[in-house]
């Protein structure tokens, strides 16, 4: 593999909380805001901020399905987000492999 095709770390995903959000969402189809917040163990505002960064990058899609009861926010990785996350994980593994 040449240097040009080696996976590179993604600066948006690399931040610890955003990396954990991508890893969490990478395992499921979508996750509710409170499940993400509890997984991170941080405040609502921190969770919102990190999700907004990922949404602005086109890596996460946020939705608020209407229905009975309180409206909840659900987050899902976009195809671009899944791809970027996979490349980032590959880059981390390449770093360890040296």
């Amino acid at each position: 593999m040449t240097a040009a095709t080696e996976p590179v770390l993604n600066e948006i995903i690399h931040a610890p909380n955003r990396l954990r959000i991508c890893a969490f969402l990478g395992t499921v189809d979508r996750a509710e805001f409170s499940a993400i917040r509890e997984m991170l163990g941080v405040a609502d505002s921190v969770t919102s901020k990190q999700l907004k960064v990922l949404e602005d990058a086109g890596y996460v899609k946020l939705s608020k399905p209407t229905g009975k009861g309180r409206v909840k926010t659900w987050a899902a990785l976009t195809p671009a987000g899944r791809g970027a996350y996979k490349v980032h994980v590959a880059a981390l593994k390449a770093l360890i492999a040296g």
């Binding site: 610890p16 954990r20 969490f24 996750a31 997984m39 593994k93």
Partner: peptide, 15 residues
């Protein structure tokens, strides 16, 4: 990088 992969593992385990 190992710490980052460990954090990924923790997030997957939480899910």
């Amino acid at each position: 990088a190992r710490e980052a992969l460990s954090a990924i593992g923790d997030a997957r385990a939480a899910a």
